[in-house]
Amino acid sequence: MELSVEYIRIAAYLGAGISVGLGAITTGVGSGLIAGGGSLGVMKQPQANDQIFRTMLIGQAASQTAGIFALVISMLLIYGGFDTPEGGWFKAATLLSAGIAMGIGSLGPSLGAGYSGGEACKSVARMPKHGNFIMGNMLIGQALAQTSAIFALLISLLLLYSTPNQPVDISIGRILIKTLAFIGAGLAIGFGTIGPGAGIGYVAGKANDMMGRFPKEKSRIMRTMFLGAAISQSTAIYSLVIAFLLIFAV
């Protein structure tokens, strides 16, 4: 069963659009949350203006990681030269699936990173003396929240680079199985990252908030944040395992 190269190109462009389109939604929302927190903080504590502004800028730059990943995947889909005619249905499915995985996969993590940064800005306004430590904690919390987006990036890169071309003599049933397995892998890791990303973002946001209220307990709060985030991460790891199995073991 042949597939001409135009259809593979259609799949690649569709995947690129889905990836960066979905990925931009919550990146924007997250940056807005951080800027909102910063504005509120400046209103409450105008003397700490410089510190709040710095925290806000750094938080916004760090919260855009998932959006940048989505952009990398869409650029690779457009210019990477994957549209070879011998790829067949397999190639079309992997290209579409890579876009879906990274697009949906950046929804949760950016939202979580944005919430965490917003709380950190308010917290710096409440306790400017501990601003540096709160900023470090914010960066760690955002990094934890974006771990699941990195899983999505990993699956997208694997789908792009390490899947085989379609063999010549192969039955339609086998093609269907493999194609839908690729799409299923993209959906699994894509939806699987939304929950953990948003949840860990909530943990990090609460930790930042409490660090501003009770700065004496900061090491204990940080340890609890790490423990809770590591356990919330487990469902994202299950999704990663299922996606691996769907790509390589079917």
Binding site: T65, I68, A143, T147, I150, F151, L154
Partner: peptide, 10 residues
Amino acid sequence: VSISFRLFGN
């Protein structure tokens, strides 16, 4: 994976 791909991707 997470610590290295974050740097690489950015």
